[in-house]
Simulated assay, not measured.
Amino acid sequence: MTQQAQYFEDYQIGDVRSTNGRTITETDFVVHAGHTGDFFPHHMDAEFCKTTPFGQRIAHGTMVFAIGVGLTAGVINTAAFTYGYDRLRFVKPVFIGDTIHTRITISAKADDPKRADAGRVTETCEVLNQRSEVVMACEHILLVNRRGV
């Protein structure tokens, strides 16, 4: 991982970056179910899933979120930290064998109403599958230090 300081003034609305891909495996399903306690049959029961519209197991939404966000952590910004996530949506199902990556677009900047030495930067995060279909989307809000303050 690379560390760098990117200050509020450095962010430009419309800037885009993409992550490397990550193939989702059955092990991911099992480990995520064990960590969360979510053994819902749509994720874990292949025979049950044959009777659903998808015909196969679908990934936990929380797993897609965790992996999709985790993929963005290749560069550590020492001048910012996560303030939270808004508008999270699971747009399409993710299946075992799908390869996902995340596209991050700077979509907004604003003053922070509580901190004069920082601003808020909003990144639109879209997780895409190998067919370039958006499977998950959310807004990631960063609290970012201003330069020289």
Rank of each mutant, 00 (worst) to 15 (best):
Asn129Arg: 01
Phe90His: 03
Ile76Ser: 14
Val127Glu: 00
Val134His: 13
His60Val: 06
Ser107Lys: 10
Ala33Phe: 08
Pro53Arg: 10
Phe90Ile: 08
Arg115Trp: 13
Phe65Cys: 09
His60Arg: 05
Asn20Glu: 15
Asn145Trp: 12
His43Trp: 07
Glu139Tyr: 03
Val149Trp: 15
Asp28Trp: 06
Tyr85Val: 11
Arg17Gln: 15
Glu9Ala: 09
Thr122Asn: 01
Thr102Ile: 02
Val94Ile: 03
Glu123Cys: 08
Leu128Trp: 07
Arg131Gln: 06
Gly37Met: 04
Ala118Asn: 03
Val149Gly: 14
Pro41Leu: 11
Val121Phe: 02
Arg146Thr: 07
Thr19Lys: 02
Lys50Trp: 01
Thr23Lys: 08
Gly14Met: 02
Ala33Gln: 06
Tyr7Leu: 13
Ser132Gln: 10
Phe8Thr: 04
Val135Leu: 08
Gln6Tyr: 13
Phe65Ser: 04
Pro53Lys: 08
Gly14Asp: 03
Ala59Ile: 01
Phe81Pro: 10
Arg87Pro: 10
Thr19Trp: 02
Val121Ser: 01
Ile100Cys: 03
Arg131Cys: 03
Ala137Lys: 15
His42Arg: 13
Arg57Leu: 03
His43Gly: 05
Ala46Ser: 14
Pro93Phe: 00
His140Gly: 05
Thr36Leu: 06
Cys138Gln: 10
Gln6Trp: 14
Gly70Asn: 04
Tyr83Thr: 06
Val121Gln: 03
Asn129Cys: 00
Met136Ala: 10
Gly84Glu: 03
Asn129Lys: 02
Leu143Pro: 02
Ala110Pro: 05
Ala46Tyr: 10
Phe81Ser: 14
Phe95Gly: 01
Leu71Glu: 06
Tyr85Thr: 12
Ile106Val: 12
Val149Asp: 15
Thr122Met: 00
Arg103Asn: 09
Ala33Trp: 07
Leu88Trp: 06
Thr102Ala: 04
Cys49Gln: 01
Asp38Trp: 08
Met44Arg: 13
Phe81Asn: 15
Gln3Leu: 15
Glu26Cys: 13
Arg103Lys: 14
Leu71Cys: 10
Gly74Ile: 07
